[in-house]
Design a protein around this nucleic acid. Structure first.
Length: 580
RNA sequence: GCACCCGUAGCUCAGUGGAUAGAGCAGCAGACUUCUAAUCUGCCGGCCGCAGGUUCGAAUCCUGCCGGGUGCACCA
């Protein structure tokens, strides 16, 4: 199947474009025909209004010239000039049915395969021996969805989990590990309740001068590569990996240990990075620190803001490490696009890192870095989400609460199922709800965390979409056949059938757009719309009780809808249960 | 002071420079001998923060204000 064949907007674009060339000459053959969804037809071409000025003619006359040259009878059953010069296009039912039929056998559901790019995606990035918070949750969920989507579009996605596994806190953490004993219960806390471990270390650091002194000495030993210290450091990292993986497993994200690309991995590059920046004249000493000053970055009172790449004590900060990620991902990973899924507050920092990388010639013009800005997650009070006592919320307990709430609902609605089945549904619905809530609002806006809303069965929620899929599966179960056995042919009679077919064709273009814009919430919006369109179909068009060709057609439409819903949710990292 | 994000229905949020700005929730009125009624239908609800500008056309692009959030020299 040709790429784009299933996308009406693209087909109409080509046809109208040909008409533009035929009507107004070769100069106009490249003009954007401005095909948009229409409330008065399926689509409308708005090119005439824009061209009228350029041609010095009335828009309606331009429109009628376009229509006169339009060879589109096989695709549209109605072409009408309307209003000031819109060309309304109504698709033929036969054409729509054929496209829907194509989807039935298309393993990609109309999603194009793009020419592959190498795309490192930086996301999740929790810290060793620290609790992940809701901010990490969001970058993890959004980053993972983007990774899945870009992969499905044919790209070579390289997941980069830039964990915080280096820095001065490790002196304190290692000393605390020694104090409590390496295989003690306290040490095991890193796997289950890392903040308890961290807070204990911090409390000692603040309270005991002796301990603080040991911690500082330990940092020096760590940086010096002293073998026993490195071993202890690795021990902490390994314990943390257990914690990360517990979260990732519960969340059902694709990250594995193979994707770990922590700060420590860049240590060997940092010295050379500073040297090269200094040699190239990009960096200079200021107040004892090696800094990059860039045009246009000023802080308070108009003072230039530096990107500090070597602190006055000789140590390196995250600016240096982040620069190293750019260099590494461009040179070693051969990145075509750089994607950083990181909190919105880091915007200025990343701009400076990229500016410095460009100045050092480490970031070629044809490699574009993207900051997928992740907005803060707020509580119902409009402030950063915390527990009532002011503590950051433990991610694991938050996920467990979502599952718990889901299981309460499942217990009420599905008493007929056994406990294991109900528990499995509750897990998928609870986790799906949390993930979908993170994904369904634009990633750069803050969003208000609300269990009741995200678990609601109405509205743009995970459970609503899961339910739509479950209900479709139920149709096939009841009918005693599998979705694969529905082979059509598709014929479109009822308006609800027609609307459903049209909606299904939108999947491919939507996924492509999400890959381009890195905005997963658009896919959520599409799936929600599809689910609503299906529901209208479900209400108006009996499937199993229909007969003959109508039944076959409706089964086929239902099967395609199921596949698109399931695949769409999968691209978001949300699993659709068999029943719920 | 500089930078980024936000401002759209009572609430939470969508909205590709195109015609009369949408959805969910809440509110009101309805629908179940039915393939899963946890799903549906209808109604109500808007100076799209304000003011200019660009344009045939602006919620959308530009400029300036107002209001809210966040970040801005050695934590990462």
């Amino acid at each position: 199947m040709l790429v784009g064949m299933a996308d009406p907007q693209e087909v109409l674009s080509r046809r109208v474009q040909s008409a533009l060339g035929a009507a107004f000459g070769a100069d106009f053959a490249e003009t954007d025909p401005v095909i948009r969804p229409s409330q008065f037809a399926d689509y409308q071409a708005n090119a005439a209004l824009a061209l009228a000025k350029r041609l010095g003619r009335k828009p309606r006359d331009v429109a009628s010239d376009i229509v006169a040259q339009l060879d589109i009878d096989d695709v549209c059953r109605e072409v009408e000039i309307s209003g000031p010069g819109f060309v309304n296009l109504t698709l033929r039912e036969e054409w729509l049915a054929d496209r829907a039929q194509d989807l039935l056998t298309d393993p990609r559901f109309g999603v194009p395969t793009q020419s592959p790019q190498n795309i490192p995606i930086d996301y999740s990035a929790p810290n060793v021996a620290k609790e992940m918070h809701v901010g990490h949750l969001r970058t993890t969920v959004v980053g993972d969805a983007l990774a899945r989507i870009l992969e499905f579009l044919g790209h070579n996605v390289i997941r980069q989990n830039h964990i915080g596994d280096w820095g001065t806190p490790f002196g304190m953490l290692i000393e605390h590990l020694l104090d409590v004993g390496e295989h003690s219960e306290d040490a095991e806390l890193v796997k289950t309740d890392p903040n308890a471990f961290y807070q204990a270390a911090k409390a000692k650091f603040d309270a005991s001068a002796e301990f603080a002194e040991r911690a500082r000495a330990r940092v020096v030993a760590l940086q010096g590569g002293e073998p026993e210290t490195l071993r202890l450091w690795r021990e902490l990292v390994d314990l943390s990996k257990v914690y990360f993986n517990r979260i990732y497993t519960k969340l059902d994200v694709t990250l594995t240990d193979d994707d770990l690309a922590g700060e420590s991995g860049y240590n060997d590059m940092l010295g050379a990075i500073c040297d090269e920046l200094e040699r190239k004249g990009v960096a200079q000493m200021s107040e004892g620190a090696l800094c990059v000053f860039l045009e246009g970055f000023t802080g308070r009172e108009g003072k230039p803001v530096p990107l500090i790449i070597r602190k006055s004590d000789g140590g390196y900060g995250y600016g240096t490490t982040d620069l190293a990620t750019v260099k590494y991902r461009v040179e070693q990973l051969k990145a075509d696009r750089l994607v950083y899924v990181i909190g919105a507050p880091q915007s200025l920092h990343l701009q400076m890192v990229w500016g410095a990388a460009r100045a050092a010639d480490w970031l070629p013009d044809d490699v574009t870095p993207y900051h997928v800005q992740i907005g803060n997650v707020l509580g119902s009070d409009g402030k950063i989400l915390r527990t009532r006592s002011g503590q950051p919320i433990r991610l694991m307990s938050l996920l467990d609460e979502a599952i718990e709430r889901a299981s309460t609902v499942v217990a009420e609605t599905r008493p007929d199922l056994d406990d294991d089945s109900r528990a499995a549904i509750a897990r998928e619905v609870g986790i799906g709800a949390v993930k979908y809530a993170d994904l369904s609002v634009s990633h750069d806006a803050e969003y208000t965390f609300d269990f009741d809303r995200m678990l609601a069965l109405n509205g743009n929620t995970g459970p609503y979409l899961q339910y739509a899929a479950a209900r479709i599966r139920s149709i096939f179960r009841r009918g005693g056949l599998s979705p694969e056995e529905a082979t059509g042919p598709v014929t479109l009679g009822e308006p609800a059938e027609r609307q459903l077919a049209l909606a299904l064709l939108g999947f491919g273009p939507t996924v492509r757009t999400v890959g381009d814009t890195l905005e997963p919430h658009r896919l959520c919006g599409y799936l929600f719309d599809l689910a609503q369109t299906f529901t209208t179909f479900y209400e108006n068009c009996p499937v199993l009780r229909a007969e003959g060709a109508t039944r076959e057609s409706r089964l086929a439409l239902t099967a395609v809808t199921l596949r698109v819903l399931v695949r769409g949710l999968e691209l978001l990292g949300v699993h659709a249960p068999e029943r719920m």
